[in-house]
Amino acid sequence: MNLRPHHFILWGLFIAGMFLMPELVGKGTLRTMIFACYLAMFAISWDILSGRTGYISFGHPFLIGIGAYTTGILTRRYGFPVEASIPIAVLVTMAGGLIVLLPALRIKGSYFALVTLAVMELMYQLVPVVRPDLTGGTRGISRLPALTRGAENGYYLAVGLMLAVALMAWLLMRTRVGTALWAIGMNEESVRGSGLSTTRLKSFAFLVSAGVAGMAGAFYAHYLGTITPRAFFDINVLFQIIVAVLIGGAGTIVGPIIGAFFMVFLLEWLRPYLPGQERFFVYGLIALVIYMYQPRGIMAIVEGAWTRLRGARS
């Protein structure tokens, strides 16, 4: 795995910093950070599959939605305890994703993206009409049991989950499997030529990605307390996830986190000055400028600055 002491120090500092936040910032900021943590988990989950293997998935909200709806239906309609409904939601997401999306992994490039987009759109159309007694139709399901109350508890839960997901993804990407996934993204034929089963590798990446999406979606649903098709299967959810990854830096662990925090905070900081939809225009403009300046995202900008700083010192 090639783990070095500075890795532990950096992770330790990062974790300590995140857990100290409630002492440093107000509750309003913590609420914003909770949303950023969930978006970061969605973004990491997307990046595990798409950022590494190059298979761009437009169907991620579908996976997040399955996790959310499974736990929502189980807890509200069948009285399952949350402790049971969330693990089931993760399994259902992985299974549901496998059945519906895995066959699409045999298709490449933009065709794969379009198939996944079609699956998400199909889900958006189906949820309100298929068994609305279970899904709540277009109004969704309200009064989901809350896991925590208050900004601080919600923050600790969200940041704990995000750090666990980030650490797991980071460790995974330092294994040989992680390296092979990278290689698929660069040249799938070569990986296959070297005797590795790319189908198995992609399936594995997909399962991990779906598991994280389902888990994050389930916790997110309980945080929101209500789920509606528009909040999960909407194209805007997909855009947010992809923009977070691209702005932060695809193919990294910290990149999607930075991207998610940047996006969510920028919009909230703009709110008092531009309370209407104009803030989305400004935010889009800033994101575009960053992407044009450095297509590999904020992570690459930071790394470049760090390299220049070290070069100047030496």
Binding site: G28, T29, R31, T32, L224, R230, A231, E268, R271
Partner: peptide, 22 residues
């Protein structure tokens, strides 16, 4: 003070949190 929802569900949650906490 006003908090825009953009008629979006998640933005609505954020807007209410903003009004309450900030």
């Amino acid at each position: 003070v006003s908090a825009d929802t953009g008629e979006d569900v998640t933005e609505g949650v954020k807007a209410y949190e903003y009004l309450a906490e900030t």
